[in-house]
Design a protein around this nucleic acid. Structure first.
Lengths: 346, 346
DNA sequence: TTGTAAGCGTTATCAA
DNA sequence: TTGATAACGCTTACAA
């Protein structure tokens, strides 16, 4: 009693293999009556198509393109490594993965790259970028051509991607909020918030979520205005120094984006390392080290390995027009403390 | 310039398809010199074997058996559901998964089941059970027959399973410890610990990890002796009531095992719901609800969906004698608060 | 010790 | 509108 195959269906329906295949793949040139007969047989025998065999016969291969910004960010770096690793095991599934780093500040160049990819043709695209009108249009064009588009880490709600691989930034901010509030304890009820830029969707959302919780659950805590560093360690040092001078000691620091190493240095110089509660985002070599040495209290993270594998799986499923396993693809908002720090990089 | 196939290798090495296959699968009966020649060709052409095609040709199917205790535990229930779901998508990969619930208290019956499976033959076994001598011997016999054995959730260190799918209980306990310590704040520095039974490896390990952290980081907190409920709500009610009478109010409760619903009722009756910090284990419908309504502060969990998929993937890889992707199979110690509670069951 | 040839479950090309 | 038949890349009897 083995799984039925196309041959069994053909016999049962009294047609040939080719006809079964036509019905299976909704190809034209089959009488409605024949289609019905075949479908009936399929239903009766409980036929499930063997995708591996189908792909083998098609001898189809996939060209997936993943676009990441060329920012120095350790998180993007980690993500790139995870993607490379996932790509290596994806060759097994006939997937070639191209990683492209684009100039983060030049959205027109990125749009041009997207248009080029549309011309050359590819089986799927994953993109980590802020949503601007040019990008949105370029993505729409791609989707119009039937190329699946996946938004990576940063959602692109108005471009209607086929899928979003990443966590809900608002909820991530809320999570950072409770941890900050509860960890503060008897420290001064004053929290500093540091971001790269408040023009980024994620930063805005994280801050919003953070405020939501602080306001609701810890009304006694004063959350200061967001300081922007634009990714520069020097700028970070300056704003932190200024605020400490103006506000006195703070009980906590919420780091919305990157800049952990620079923050560590400033605090260390002022003998403050280990005193304020510090909550940050993403697991990177720096944040791992800071957690391990104890001055970073918590990290809100998304699993880079999972992001990478999920991206490729989803891209592949979309290219094959197959459904995806929602529960497997859903990313968790991970809370990492020193005690549950995984010992492996990714 | 397509990917090279066995045919290309055969041509390059000047041998036949069959010989290439023998080398590829490390089958006996090939001269060392020939093996070298084939491997050389493989390396030179950069051959990567198409696993899908290989499995198709093998037309091998797998009978995987998963053994779970018949405890009422919601976690086991959740795990069973996750396994059923994973099993459903595993048919695609020619895997049939049998789920067996065994009488938790009868290790001899379980050993008999294992022996029966060894006789009938199967491609892999996953087992969630405490390690007793009978079980250990039965497992050794299975492994001796070449049947891969995976320990599920509860490790079986002395039976030398091929793999362990689950988290490190000691580290999980440590994680519970920091959360408890930091969340306590100004509450009475006294913590109650409740377990099903202190004969279970995991309970012991969790408690040990918890104590480690409390002693090191929160020496001012008094952690009471572990109370055992043996899974009975009545027993739980009784021990909790006794302790509250003897010790006065406690600042926190660490629930090592199940019993969340019963605990909620006792606390609620005494008007204590929401006062002590409560930390528990595993995400189940009950713990989700308790987190959402706010009286449960944190849950240390392992992802049931991940456990299920990982188990099947590992079993399959072991059956095929293929290497496993460590980073993908490593389970994280998840910290779940109300704010990062995933909205989907698994 | 090595080779030949027939599958595995699909899809794709031609003819009918 | 349908049907033979040859791929796809690999495994495996069976022969040599």
């Amino acid at each position: 009693m083995n799984r039925p195959t196309v041959i069994d269906i053909a016999r049962e329906a009294g047609v040939s293999l080719a006809t079964v295949d036509r019905v299976l793949n909704a190809r034209p040139g089959v009488r409605a009556k024949t289609i019905a007969a075949v479908n009936e047989a399929i239903g009766r025998l409980g036929y499930v198509r063997d995708i591996a065999a189908a792909n083998l016969a098609r001898s189809r291969s996939y060209r997936m393109v993943v676009l990441l910004p060329d920012t120095e960010s350790q998180f993007v770096q980690t993500l790139e490594e995870a993607l490379r690793e996932a790509a290596a095991s994806a060759v097994t599934a006939r997937m070639g993965v191209e990683l492209i780093r684009f100039a983060a500040e030049d959205m027109h160049a990125l749009a041009a790259t997207l248009r080029r990819l549309a011309e050359e043709g590819c089986s799927g695209i994953a993109l980590m970028a802020p949503e601007t009108p040019v990008i949105r249009d370029a993505l729409r064009a791609l989707r119009g051509q039937g190329v699946p588009v996946v938004a990576l880490v940063s959602d692109l709600p108005n471009s209607e991607p086929d899928h979003y691989v990443g966590i809900d930034s608002r909820a991530a901010g809320r999570t950072a909020g409770v941890l900050m509030g509860r960890f503060l304890g008897a420290r001064p009820p004053k929290v500093m918030v540091i971001a790269n830029s408040m023009h980024l969707r994620e930063s805005i959302e994280r801050r919003r979520g953070f405020d939501e919780v602080m306001l609701r659950d810890f009304p006694g805590v004063e959350v200061l205005q967001t300081l922007e560093t634009h990714g520069s360690p020097t700028a970070l040092r300056q704003v932190v120094t200024e605020i400490l001078a103006a506000e006195g000691t703070v009980g906590g620091i919420y780091l919305l984006g990157s800049g952990l190493r620079a923050l560590g240095r400033v605090l260390s110089e002022r003998g403050l390392l280990g005193h304020p509660v510090i909550v940050g985002h993403e697991l990177t070599p720096h944040s791992r080290e800071a957690l391990a040495s104890g001055w970073l209290d918590a990290v809100i993270a998304q699993n880079a390995g999972h992001i990478a594998r999920s991206t490729l799986r989803v891209l592949r499923a979309k290219a094959d027009r197959l459904p995806i396993d929602e529960s497997q693809e859903r990313l968790r908002i991970e809370i990492i403390l020193r005690e549950n720090l995984p010992d492996q990089p990714l």
